[in-house]
Nucleic acid binder design. Sequence first.
DNA 1: TTATAATACTAATTGAATTAGTTTTGTAAG
DNA 2: CTTACAAAACTAATTCAATTAGTATTATAA
Lengths: 192, 192
Amino acid sequence: MPRAGLDQQTVVQIAAELADGHGLENLTLAMLAQKLGIRTPSLYNHVNGLPELRRKLTLYGLNRLRDALARAAMGRSGDEALRAMAEAYLAFARKHPGLYEATQRSLDRRDAEVEQAAAEAIEPVLRVLEAYGLQGEAAIHTVRGFRSLLHGFADIERQGGFGMEVDPDASFHLLVEIFLAGIHSLSAGSEK
Amino acid sequence: MPRAGLDQQTVVQIAAELADGHGLENLTLAMLAQKLGIRTPSLYNHVNGLPELRRKLTLYGLNRLRDALARAAMGRSGDEALRAMAEAYLAFARKHPGLYEATQRSLDRRDAEVEQAAAEAIEPVLRVLEAYGLQGEAAIHTVRGFRSLLHGFADIERQGGFGMEVDPDASFHLLVEIFLAGIHSLSAGSEK
DNA sequence: TTATAATACTAATTGAATTAGTTTTGTAAG
DNA sequence: CTTACAAAACTAATTCAATTAGTATTATAA
């Protein structure tokens, strides 16, 4: 019965570490409770069950991702900023696989808080693209494309999907360059 | 005790339907057994537990995906073939969300059969790229990029990640065109 | 026919989530 | 310096899914 000095932050952070180490789907309340040195039911004093814990991980992860992206874009613009954000995105996914998973896990569009956190996470990219000339729907399409390629690469790599022992970093850099070149090529074509 | 006339194929197909309807992670042996009209333990006469069922779904999904891609590429080459395969890929992911999930679910690189099925699924793409001029590591990098963007888009969409009500198909088409233009642009540049 | 392998079943175990109800403790008001 | 209360632990008990063990049944093929 001695107090364990836990607060929401601690619980979520430890949960994130466990998710990183064992995979989000293998994170169990029993495992978390043990790590925290309390019995499983006691967890309910801090978090309202597994679903809510996962939701909190999603929010925490989205915030951390937003910070990472914003920091990467700081002081840069255009291609430079996009390259830096791509690096930062992949680095985040690699360093925090479980937390990254949480940022993608079936986001509930009816959950306003999650919805907003997701929007904020992408905002840095949107901002760069706007200062870059793209606006409105074109910007949205482009952000979607950028996200798609980043998430696709990160997710496939996380699941061990890239079989051969060809350097993944080289593949990633090339992909980013292809994307940048593609954007320039298309926008140049449409300007005529 | 009356026979239920089940065979592996049936079991896996029904499982795939349930996964499509409820999500792969929510597919339970109890649910599958009920759908099949037998008791849960009886399932063990057909499949050796949940992990193996999922593994079989992975194999089944990879084979179906390979077929879809191969069919799309049939009679086409170059950009045309890549566009058609991109369409087919997204269509598959949309029509069979649970099965698609299974094709991506933490592929065990030590499982030779899965490893091969995964390689075969991508083969059609690799083939097109080769007949397209790319070979060796360059081809591998490019395939990885193509897979990344396809999977990323499909996965984000499946999880409801594209918030706004901007036409997803338009985003997807643009992304594919950006990729194609990017490839051309870069290869043109490196030819000098 | 009858033996046997395949397939279904019931019973029982295990592990995780969750709920209910109780106890303890830190803190802050008196 | 107490005491009252809310926060945070705990134990006990329930539910549900997976899995195992052991038994019965049926279809088939010798």
